[in-house]
């Protein structure tokens, strides 16, 4: 007990509650889940939690086509959604940056989609794209563009597109907000200097504005790649991985494996592969961010 009375013990004592919370909330689940990824842990057979099988789960994963399809689909999903959101968000930010009257209101309105729960967005889009009663098909019918209903969520190639559309609808404003912040922080003089130097508006954008914005683009990319990599809720509602697994992403596969098939050990192994992928993405974008920022400064 003497140690606790020493002055040098004070910081440890003060930090103790935080340490206990972190241990309980983060570290223990992390260690346990990491352990289970080396066991054939099945929710229905608790004893399997203590049966160490080494890398068997990971070995099976590497040879599992379903897993690799889901993995590839997730990467593709991230790539398409992020790039679309980037381009649309940049366009939105540039437009809103030009608005002088009512910009604050517009900024707030722009953020509305972010305020909805993804589950509700999923339901909404499921309804919009329903082949029988959906608004989209009804509108296309009434306009005479189609004669047969389009099975948006049932067709194997349309379903992923529909999900991407919902994702883009909900999250483009994240890019728009971050890029708008970048645009507002943009120093005025280099742009004026470029105008005097002979640039037309496109050249000013291409050579001055865009390089200035790149750090903001990479920050947005980092945040959003983490978000999209764990896409689950919207997909679960809209297609639940279907039709025939054509929209199965890593997290829907993981949940199916862990809770429907009770193979928690295997699901945790998938989880760790997915986390590793996310870390790689983050690392990549972070490197890009650092190198884009290295150029900045020194304008004034």
């Amino acid at each position: 007990m003497n140690f606790l009375r020493l002055p040098r013990a004070t910081p440890y004592l003060l930090l103790l509650p935080a340490i206990v919370v972190i241990l309980g909330v983060v570290l223990v689940p992390l260690v346990v889940s990491f352990w289970t990824s080396f066991t054939p842990y099945n929710l229905t057979k608790p004893a399997t939690l203590f049966q160490f099988v080494g890398l068997r789960n990971y070995e099976r994963l590497l040879g599992n086509a379903d897993f690799w399809w889901a993995f590839g689909r997730t990467i593709l999903f991230i790539t398409i959604a992020l790039n679309l959101e980037m381009v649309l968000g940049l366009g939105l930010a540039l437009l809103i940056n030009k608005v002088t009257w009512g910009q604050r209101t517009l900024r707030t309105i722009m953020m509305f989609p972010m305020m909805f729960s993804p589950i509700l967005v999923g339901f909404q889009f499921k309804y919009l794209f329903n082949d029988a009663v959906g608004l989209v098909n009804n509108a296309l019918f009434d306009l005479g563009i189609i004669q047969q209903p389009i099975p948006w969520l049932v067709d194997g190639s349309l379903a992923p597109l529909t999900i991407i559309l919902a994702e883009v609808w909900m999250s483009t404003s994240v890019f728009a907000i971050l890029l708008l912040a970048g645009l507002m922080a943009l120093p005025k003089e280099p742009i004026e200097a470029a105008k005097v130097d002979g640039c037309n508006p496109w050249q000013v954008f291409r050579h001055i504005t865009l390089p200035f914005l790149m750090p903001f683009v990479y920050i947005a990319m980092t945040i959003r790649s983490l978000d999209v990599a764990r896409a689950y809720d919207m997909v679960r509602i809209m297609t639940n991985g279907g039709p025939a697994g054509r929209t199965e992403l890593l997290w829907t596969l993981m949940t199916r494996t862990g809770y429907n098939n009770s193979q928690m050990g295997m699901a945790n192994a998938m989880g760790y592969v997915s986390i590793l992928t996310s870390i790689l993405f983050t690392y990549y974008f972070y490197r890009k961010l650092v190198s884009a920022r290295a150029f900045m400064g020194g304008a004034q």
Binding site: A193, N200, A299
Partner: peptide, 20 residues
């Protein structure tokens, strides 16, 4: 005329160099 068509050069107070 826009600045680019006036054949002028300008030096700014804050230098306004292109930082990248």
């Amino acid at each position: 005329l826009p600045p680019r068509s006036r054949n002028i050069s300008m030096v700014f107070q804050s230098y306004a160099l292109y930082p990248h």
